[in-house]
Simulated scan of single mutants.
Amino acid sequence: MNTATDTANASRRASRAAPLASFAADIRRDLLDREPFTFRHRLLGHPALSLQNLGRAIPALPASQVYYSSGRLERGDDFDRAHVDHANGLSIEETIETIRTSDSYIMVRAAETDASFQPLFRELVSDVQELMRERRVGRVAHGATLYLFIASPGSITPFHIDRYSTILMQFQGSKEVTVFPAWDDRVMPSTVREGFVAHAGPRPIWDAQAEPLGTTFRFAPGDALHIPFVAGHHVRNGPGEVSISMSIIFNTDETRRMTQAMVLNERLRRLNLAPAPVGRNAWRDGAKAALWAAGARLARGLR
């Protein structure tokens, strides 16, 4: 394989591709859900991400969309329960006001619920769907959602995996994100990965021995990072400034099929069978997804 030639060919393809409103031309369109990579975004200075707007919008959102906790977490903590197990003892208004000094972490789900984020959300969805079309993995960004992350200096986001693809954009402060190979059983066993994706098993537990397998990306305002579907990762914010970042999450037709295949695997294991892990053979994964979809249609027809 000639890496220099591959890079040059990718660059030529990008120059011929349709321009994107929110993402700069250095985005690796060919690597979507194949590998993590950094690039530049064009959204610095967007009014929706101003401190004034965030201070207004976040407290106005339903409480079920706003999670906040202490930022003094460890990589192995349960990220999904941080707001319960590591509460910071403050209200959301107090947390926002003291975020520079209170060692706190705020995560907002579905920020597009607030009208100020709607134009930005539509622009990002349009760009993501253009990337999907070029990769031939679908035309609709299924379940697209915006997440906001506001964190005190030095805060840690514990290791976790997501059931979707992610593009993370930095607006203030700096951070380090360590991303691990999505389908490597040395990071987590396939049984754990598939059970978690199927909503039928425990969350993945951090194994410090897997740390050398990760790639650490350091980025600052204007930088963005693509985290592939089910790629484990953890985050450390920089020491000097409050970190403000936003991600758009989504599923492609391809990742939906892989989800279906993992759900089927989890059901087969309940029958004491040992199916081959998802992520190793595209043809086999596609057959499993088709089988699961056919079974689901049959079940609906019998109701």
Rank of each mutant, 00 (worst) to 15 (best):
Q129S: 14
M132K: 00
R135N: 13
V137Y: 09
G138R: 08
G138A: 02
R139T: 10
R139N: 12
V140A: 12
V140F: 14
T145N: 14
L146D: 06
Y147R: 10
Y147K: 13
F149Y: 14
I150R: 01
A151T: 10
A151G: 09
S152C: 05
S152P: 14
S152N: 08
S152I: 03
I156A: 09
T157M: 09
T157W: 03
F159G: 08
R163I: 15
Y164E: 13
S165H: 11
T166H: 04
T166C: 03
M169P: 05
Q170C: 07
Q172L: 11
Q172N: 08
K175V: 11
E176K: 13
T178K: 08
V179D: 02
F180E: 06
W183V: 06
D184T: 04
D185R: 11
R186E: 08
M188H: 11
P189S: 12
P189R: 11
P189T: 11
S190T: 04
T191M: 05
T191L: 10
V192R: 13
V192L: 12
E194L: 04
E194V: 10
E194G: 11
E194C: 11
G195F: 07
V197H: 02
A198D: 06
H199P: 08
H199N: 13
I205V: 12
W206K: 08
A208I: 05
E211Y: 05
P212W: 05
G214L: 00
G214S: 06
G214Q: 01
F217Y: 15
A220D: 14
A220G: 08
P221W: 10
P221K: 04
P221F: 07
D223G: 15
D223A: 15
A224H: 00
P228L: 14
F229W: 03
V230M: 15
V230K: 00
G232H: 02
G232Q: 02
V235N: 05
R236P: 04
R236L: 08
R236F: 04
P239G: 03
G240V: 15
E241Q: 12
E241I: 05
V242T: 15
V242M: 09
S243G: 10
S245T: 06
S247R: 04
I249R: 01
N251F: 05
D253W: 04
D253T: 02
E254Q: 11
T255R: 15
R256I: 09
R257V: 00
M258A: 15
M258E: 10
Q260I: 03
M262N: 07
L264R: 07
R267Q: 09
R267V: 14
L268H: 06
L268E: 15
R270A: 13
R270C: 12
L271E: 14
N272E: 13
L273P: 00
L273K: 10
A274G: 03
